[in-house]
């Protein structure tokens, strides 16, 4: 059992905003800061765009954790985008918790484009948390790189 747990490599989807968190991830790469490869970054124009549907879809398709990273409130490119992200996140949090996904699997953080070290740190810490939690309780709708093919199509 222990050896199995050690092998578990989670899949983590990170929604990063175009103006702050994505450049931060970029900066982490340029500065050769190490962070786990479990993080799969999806670039979005604004963290406020990350509606419950996107997060739920990620979990539905088999993500073990979802990270939403946006600008700090003060330096949001769209003035109110980061605040919107925080508001939407509250709804998403309630939904995921109600449906039985552990609270710690979803995380919202504010990372400015200058904070490459913070990005690397958040990525490391979040991956460690997810590794501790183990695989997602959701039965994956997607295995490998393909949608599951139903009996009828075969």
């Amino acid at each position: 059992m222990n050896s199995q747990k050690a092998k578990f490599e989670p899949k983590i989807v990170a929604f990063c905003c175009n103006w702050c968190s994505y450049p931060a991830a970029d900066g982490a790469g340029v500065s050769r800061l190490q962070y786990p490869t479990n993080i799969r970054i999806i670039r979005v124009m604004c963290g406020g765009r990350v509606t419950p549907s996107l997060v739920l879809k990620a979990f539905e398709l088999g993500a073990d954790g979802v990270l939403v990273a946006t600008c700090h409130f003060e330096d949001c490119h769209y003035m109110f985008g980061a605040r919107k992200a925080a508001d939407v996140h509250k709804i998403t949090e309630q939904l995921t918790e109600m449906i039985g996904i552990e609270k710690d699997r979803l995380m919202l953080d504010w990372i400015s484009s200058a904070e490459a070290t913070k990005f690397a740190k958040v990525a490391q810490e979040f991956t460690a948390t997810i590794k501790k939690l183990g695989p997602s309780p959701i039965k994956k709708q997607m295995t490998g790189d393909k949608y599951q093919i139903t009996e009828d199509i075969k």
């Binding site: 419950p52 879809k57 918790e97 449906i99 039985g100 039965k139």
Partner: peptide, 22 residues
Amino acid sequence: SHGGAAQSLMRIMTTPDLQQKR
């Protein structure tokens, strides 16, 4: 509608041993 959030919720619910807090 709603980005498919409702459909995602339903598909997540197909998990047999889900522990909902409803």
